[in-house]
Each structure stands twice: as C-alpha cells, then as structure tokens.
Design a protein around this nucleic acid. Structure first.
Length: 579
RNA sequence: GCCGGCUUAGCUCAACUGGCAGAGCAACUGAUUUGUAAUCAGUAGGUUGUAGGUUCGAGUCCUAUAGCCGGCACCA
C-alpha cells in the first residue's frame, strides 16, 4: 500500500488537498472551525469543530462535489507571512488559531498562512501552486478525535481523505482498500471456521476446530524452534495474589486493567503479564553463573481489561497468549544474546515470508528507573547487537519502557501494512524488585540482567495478521486441512481414498475425504473456496495405476502422478515448511 | 471510555414516504452416481440484538441498553 507521507510529491498534494477539503467544509458548514490538517501515511485528515453539526459519511459526496467546484475555479494558492500580532488579528475570532499562534515561540516569529480564494489557514506549507492540481481525491472516513490528542479535551471531528496525481493511481489505491477488506481476518475467520466471538464474552475469542489446528501447528512450530534454540519451558499460574502484584508494581500501575477476584478473603488478580510468575520460577532455586544465560519460554495466557472501544477481532482482545520468554544473564552476555535473538527472530519471520524493520526505543525523558550510565550502556549494547547481526535499526528517542530500552520488530505483510510484533526488552526493574541473584565465579551473589522477549507478540493477533497476509490461503504446513481427497464416485472409489487417508494421517498430515453425494465440480469448488492447499481426485484411472490426480489451491490445472510420489512430495513440502 | 455508523434466517442481503417479514447460498429430505469452480425437486428455518415507548398498526419513528465496525484515547 502506498505511503503518502514518504512520497514528497504526494505529501504536498495531500497537504493542499486537506486545505481544499477545509475550504469546502467551511462553505457548507459556515460555523466550522479548524484545528490541524496534516498528511499521514494513508493520506490526509483535518480536525474540525462543527459545533452542533455533524459530518457523516453520507455527506461526503456533497463535500467532494464542493471540492471539485473549488478545484475547477482554479484559484492560486498563495503564501503570506505575518507577524504574531498580525496573525492574532487575522484570526481573532478563532480560538483554535489563537491557541496555535500563542504556542509559537518568540514575539518576532514569522508565521505563514496560505490563502486560496476566500479561504485562509495557518500553515508551514509547502503547497501546490493552484487548487486546479487537486483533482483526484476521495474522502475516506470520519471519526471523532480528541483536541490535541488529549482524552480530557473535547472531541473534534476528523475527516480523512487521500489525493493522487491521476485517476489511475486513485483507482489502484481504492482497489487495494477493497482487497484489504476482502482479507479482513474477522470475515475470513468466519468463512474458514477458524474462530468466533460471542457477545457473552466481548474480546474473548473462541477457537473453532479448524482454527485450533492452525493454532496448534503454530504453537508446535514455536516449541520446536525454541527447543533447538536452547530454551526451557514453564507454565505459570493464571492467577496470583495481590502481594505478588504489589512486588511487581502492577498493582499500583495497572490495577484498573486487571481482573481481580477474592479467594478466602484474599485479593487475587488474573495475570496481565507472565513476568512476575517467571520471577518466582527463577527464585525457586540458586543459580550459578555457569547456568547463564537461562532462557525460559512460556506460551502464557494473559488477561487485560482493554477499553471496550479498543477491541478489534483478534487484533485487540481481552485475553491472549504471549509467546513469552525471559532470559536471565550476566551484563557481559547482553550483546551476544541479543545478536542471537535477532537472528532467531529473523529465521522465524522468514518462515512466513514476512519482512521487517527494527526500531530501538531509548530512555524516556522523565519517567525511568535506574542510572543514566546503565541506560546508556544497555542502549549501546542493543544498538551494537543490531549492527553485529547485520541489521539496521531506527532510533525512537525516549520511547523505551520506564524499566529499560527495547528493540521492536515491525513486520510488513503482503499488502505492505506494518504491524509491531516482536520485541526485545531489557528490564532493569524486576530483577531488583524480586531480588534476583546468581552466584558468580568469585562466590559472590550478583544481580542478573533480564530481558523479556516475544516473537509473535500475541499468538491470537499474529494469527490474525497471518490470515490477512495469506488472505486465508495458508502455506501447506500451516493449513488447517492440508489435503482434500475427492472420489469421483463415492460408491466405487471410496475404499482407495480411505487407504490414502489412513496413510496420510499416519504421517500426521491433516486430511479430509469429501464423499458427499455431489458432483465432482461442486466438491472441488468448495475445496477451493475453503482454500485447501491440495486436492487429490481419484477415479477409475487413478486406482488402476496407483495414481492420484493432484490439484493445488488457486491453480486451474491438475496433474496425474504416482500416488507414492505425490505422497513423498507432500511430506517433504510439509517438513520443509515451504511457502 | 469518547465520536459516528451498523445490528433482519447459520452466511450474504431485500422489504417505497410506518401497512401481510422475503431471496440466494448453507442445512435437511428425496431423486440423481457424478472426471476438475455450483444437478434437479421439495422441506424446514424469524419474538427483525435486547427492554421500553409513540401509533389503529413498528423491521421502519423515539428512549435506553448490549454487541459489532471505523477512528480517537489507551496498549505494562
């Protein structure tokens, strides 16, 4: 999907289009007052105060028509430079502009405004020369948005749109949006019987048999690669008492987002994170420097009371499974361990054909714990590890957690959308709070360094991303049903099919026979619509020669091959986890 | 939580300004025994999300509420 913000020409075009929209809105809603109208990756928006009035999507054609009219009139867009006083004078009846102007530093600051016809707005620019250049645009959505992004402020109306240089680009973009809609994991999840939601448990997904197969395959893969990577595995309780959450600090910081319950007069909370339980596991025994780094993995089910409006399919839920691990180590081991982790994560993402970028988030300006010296050292270690692993990393200054810096992995799906999934976080807080130690070479007890890390992030969300990434057509190794066997005539060919099925099942291959009383074309169509990767058709010809007729998902062709060869090829493809 | 929208059969959607709740697919039954994306016929399926209200009459209008969707805020 196109990124408007990063394309210089489109950036300017969309910025000007935001002004064009504002002008049209002002004509149709004379009471409208405007806050800001920036360019974003997906186009532009404008935050508007309409008083009692409301803009709805059904009003878009009207606004777009007015925009077209203004564009046709072809007024030039001109820049004016003002002093602070002049600007205040010019916008004296607009509290939003006054707020903007008074925020500008110094009394001698030069303020620029852009004018097109009767419409003028404060703006740094640049803009296109004339509104005539703004022809190929579309308003996309409208929503509420807090003034200055602060939930305690009033809500303005935010209208989104996008503008291109020609009709073809606009059409392509709108087509892509339609494509994305077709891939919606909530829609595909229903069509492919993967999961369901119920109003009896908002935000708590139900996994259906087909989805469970997908999920278990993914989890088995996770255990397999982590075992090879030297991880141990644990499972910590879902529920622990208040005292533990006080030690971890969650009771004070996140209590309103935790589900609590009283047991025998004591307060308990359902875990919103796995770490405190992990700390207790570490403290269960003594640790020698010889045992470090200790990598402890847990597919841990956590519950968080997310705001109702935040819920969104599998992307944002109230219970989810983190593919968590805590790694305990000495300070000297940070860099080599993180290099190893980056390489590990790289291998995992490549299994799904997902590319990614890494971002390093550093010490927050104000809220942080620990000494600046340790922070600097940790940040340097993470950055060095990235370089050593041969990866670039973008730096997000001040975006780290209060307890440590982190590396975030942003994956890019097949539509070019970006999702933050993996993260590697150094934690200087919990080892202290839980008084973790190891016995060093010199016999002294020392404080280990700990890092949290996830690769999928949330198993549920990752599956949602995979559904959209693959448009529901999973690679063979992941597909809930891998092979559909279709007897041409169930009466005569079923026995042979059942032998094939038994043989596939013995190898752990997920297979179904469709022997319903329907024509082959009907059953084949259904198998294709369920995006089953492989269909084997069996009739008289195949049985006579120990063959199967193989058809793949999405291919409008089939090949008749020896059954043993088909079997071997399938097994190999699954074993290799081919894409 | 906030702003806006939506909610009709398992799914996708109809039902003019308030006037007899309907179709396709799926399901079920029967016929058909099928060779690469839909065989034919029939049957059943609904307190129109829920609770109130207005009206002779409500899927349609009003109020409340739940859930969902698009954003905002939040995301340890």
């Amino acid at each position: 999907m196109i990124n408007v913000k990063e394309n210089e020409q489109l950036n300017v075009l969309n910025h000007s289009c935001a002004h064009l929209m504002a002008q049209a809105v002002k004509r149709l809603y004379p009471k409208a007052m405007f806050w800001v109208g920036p360019v974003i990756n997906e186009g532009f928006y404008y935050d508007i105060d309409l008083g009692e009035d409301v803009i709805r999507e059904e009003d878009f054609p009207k606004i777009e028509a007015e925009m077209k009219k203004i564009s046709k009139d072809g007024k030039r867009i001109s820049r004016e430079e003002l002093t602070k006083d002049q600007a205040l004078e010019m916008f004296s009846d607009d509290p939003y502009k006054i707020d903007l102007i008074s925020q500008m530093d110094g009394d001698n600051v030069v303020i620029s405004a852009y004018r097109q016809g009767e419409f003028v707005d404060l703006c740094r620019g640049p803009h296109v020369e004339t509104v005539k250049q703004l022809k190929f645009f579309k308003l996309l959505k409208v929503s509420g948005a807090y003034w200055k992004g602060d939930a305690s402020n009033k809500m303005l109306q935010r209208v989104y749109g996008i503008c291109f240089e020609n009709q073809a680009d606009l059409d392509t973009h709108l087509f892509m949006l339609e494509e994305a809609k077709k891939r919606d994991h909530k829609k595909l999840g229903r069509e492919l019987d993967l999961f369901m939601m119920s109003e009896y448990g908002p935000g708590f997904p139900f996994w259906l048999p087909k989805g469970m197969l997908l999920r278990k395959t993914l989890e088995n893969f996770w255990y397999e690669v982590h075992t090879k990577e030297g991880y141990d595995f644990v499972q910590t309780p879902i529920m622990l008492n208040q005292q533990l959450w006080e030690v971890s600090g969650h009771w004070f910081n996140y209590r309103e987002n935790m589900y609590t319950s009283e047991i025998d007069d004591k307060m308990f909370a359902i875990k919103p994170m796995n770490c405190p339980g992990g700390m207790l596991v570490y403290k269960n025994g003594l640790h020698s420097y010889k045992d470090l780094p200790w990598r402890v993995g847990e597919l841990g089910l956590v519950h968080r009371h997310e705001a109702s409006g935040a819920l969104n399919g599998l992307f944002r839920v109230r219970n989810f499974t983190q593919d968590d691990a805590h790694i305990f180590m000495t300070e000297e081991q940070i860099e080599s361990e993180v290099v190893r982790l980056i390489q590990f994560i790289d291998r995992v993402y490549s299994m799904f054909n997902l590319s990614y970028t890494i971002e390093l988030s550093t010490r927050p300006e104000e809220k942080y714990i620990g000494s600046i010296e340790v922070w600097d050292k940790s940040e340097a270690a993470l950055e060095k590890a990235c370089a050593a692993a041969g990866k670039k990393c973008k730096i997000n200054p001040g975006d780290g957690a209060f307890y440590g810096p982190k590396l975030d992995f942003h994956i890019q799906d097949s539509l070019g959308r970006v999702w933050q999934c993996g993260t590697i976080q150094l934690d200087m807080n919990l080892p202290e709070r839980f008084d973790l130690t190891y016995v060093d070479r010199d016999g002294e007890k020392k404080r280990p360094v700990m890092l949290h890390r996830v690769i999928f992030g949330s198993v549920e969300r990752f599956i949602g991303i995979l559904i959209e990434h693959f448009a529901g057509a999973f690679p063979l190794w992941l597909a809930p049903v891998q092979v559909k066997i279709l007897p041409v005539n169930a009466e005569f060919h079923l026995g042979y099919c059942e032998n094939l099925k038994t043989r596939l099942m013995e190898e752990g291959i997920r297979v179904e026979i469709d022997d319903r009383n329907e024509k082959l074309g009907y059953r084949l169509r259904e198998a294709q619509m369920h995006k089953i990767p492989v269909q084997w058709v069996v009739g008289d010809g195949e049985i006579a020669n120990n063959e199967v007729n193989v058809r793949r998902y999405g291919k409008n062709e089939s090949r008749t091959v020896n059954a043993d060869e088909a079997f071997a090829k399938l097994a190999k493809e699954i074993k290799n986890r081919s894409l």
